[in-house]
Amino acid sequence: MDKKISRLKSHYIICGAGEICWFIMGEFLEANLPFIVIDKNQEFIDELTEKGIMALKGDSSDNKILEAAGIKHAKGLLAIHSTDLENLLTVMSSRQMNPDMRIIAAVTDNANCAKFKRFGTDTIIPVSEVTGRRIAAAAVHPTVTSFFDIDGRAEEGISGSVIEIELEQGSCLVDRPQKSSNMLSKTGATILCLIRGDEIQVNPGLNERFREKDRLLVFGTIAQINEFKKLACPGDSASKEASGLGLSRESLGSLFGKWQRRAKRSINNISKSVKRRAPKSGHRG
């Protein structure tokens, strides 16, 4: 495992366990992105490493732990601890060690967003606000929401997703009009949007010549998107061997369920213990 970690390049560092972590790992597994998890819970780390997922026990704000996770070669870091303080300390340490990588942080108190921005967070996710907007959208625009919702698509048999791809030199799309690459017929994936600096083009024309560093929003099934990435991003180093992932999303879901059941038993045991210790009600004469 140590050798695999030392070979990590252009990977993501996930800092913090919990339910959010499981969903992120599921998405990364499906997209075949290399990642490593950092958390203080030894049992959680052991479970992941037994399944072939790279993980380190420790404090994610500790420079030595971050260095061991390959932060200098990381593409991004996700701070998703349960407290804003842990996430902020992680952001502060990681930004100093890698000024160029993308940092994403979950924030529970919106009043702390400015602090995260000040210390170099690229994307701030205010958890309560995002959840509230998502619930409201499901009420106001139920059809649109269910179409773009991963779990909803699975239930309804619709398997589609939107991802962002940045074009690099050597891509079959660079310096060529879109129609000559014929990516739709080759992969089945559709280019929804072109982002070039501050310019955004929805549904770019067939004569549009893409450039290096252009970002594309691509829609399709996971298989279609993976095929699109193979052709459009030949230098992409993300692979199952590189990420050390021999685990399917279904297996990860099973492991997540196991942890949920274990947490529920722990809560029940604590509840029973509290009830046993609680003084019996009644009037003392």
Rank of each mutant, 00 (worst) to 15 (best):
M1Y: 11
I5S: 12
Y12D: 03
C15T: 10
G18S: 09
E19V: 02
W22T: 13
G26E: 12
E27P: 02
L29E: 08
L29A: 05
E30W: 05
F35A: 09
I36D: 04
I45S: 07
I45N: 00
I45F: 04
L48G: 04
T49W: 01
E50P: 02
K51R: 13
K51N: 15
K51E: 15
K51Y: 09
G52C: 03
G58V: 08
S60K: 02
I65N: 13
L66M: 10
A69Q: 08
I71T: 10
K72E: 15
A74C: 15
L77N: 02
L78A: 11
L78I: 11
A79W: 06
T83D: 15
L85C: 04
N87A: 11
N87P: 13
L88T: 04
L89M: 12
T90F: 06
Q96I: 00
I103H: 13
A105L: 07
A106W: 06
D109W: 07
D109T: 10
R118I: 09
R118L: 12
F119T: 11
F119D: 13
T121Y: 08
D122S: 12
T123A: 06
I124D: 15
I125T: 13
I125V: 14
P126A: 12
E129L: 05
G132H: 01
R134Q: 11
A136L: 04
A138E: 07
V140C: 01
V140F: 04
P142Y: 07
V144C: 06
F148M: 06
I150Q: 14
R153H: 06
E156M: 03
E156N: 14
E156I: 03
G157K: 06
I158K: 09
I158F: 11
V162S: 02
E166F: 02
E168D: 06
G170V: 08
C172M: 08
S180K: 00
S181D: 04
K186E: 10
T190N: 05
I195P: 01
D198H: 00
D198V: 03
I200C: 01
P204S: 03
N207D: 06
R209E: 12
F210P: 08
E212K: 00
R215A: 01
L216N: 09
E227P: 00
E227L: 08
K229P: 00
K230G: 05
A232Q: 00
C233G: 00
D236T: 00
E241M: 04
S243G: 10
G246N: 05
G246R: 01
K264D: 08
R265A: 06
S266E: 14
I267Q: 07
N268E: 14
V274C: 04
H283G: 05
R284N: 14
G285Q: 07
